[in-house]
């Protein structure tokens, strides 16, 4: 399994691709909506791309629990374990 930092970095590239947020801004403590300015449509795109990238499933009803980048990374780590 990839390290926390590797997951964060790959996720940051996805967020950058979808929303144009600089990858360096996508840190574990940042809220997707409040800090990174993402809307719900962008979040769906990020989730689907992350599923493909990390080979995990992120059910729709779980997405609302992924408020921060750290939440998403932790979910991916657990799902991939």
């Amino acid at each position: 399994m990839a390290s926390t930092e590797e997951i964060r970095s790959d996720l940051a590239d996805i967020v950058n691709e979808v929303a144009g947020v600089p990858a360096a801004d996508v840190q574990l403590d940042k809220s997707f909506t409040d800090d990174l300015g993402m809307d719900s449509l962008g979040m769906v795109e990020v989730v689907v791309a992350a599923e493909e990238k990390f080979g995990v499933k992120i059910p729709d009803d779980q997405v609302k629990n992924l408020a921060t980048v750290g939440d998403a990374v932790a979910f991916i780590e657990r799902a991939g374990a």
């Binding site: 449509l41 769906v44 795109e45 689907v48 599923e51």
Partner: peptide, 10 residues
């Protein structure tokens, strides 16, 4: 279906 963009309609 999962890969249909959520932006497709807008």
């Amino acid at each position: 279906p999962r890969r249909v963009s959520p932006l497709a309609i807008p």
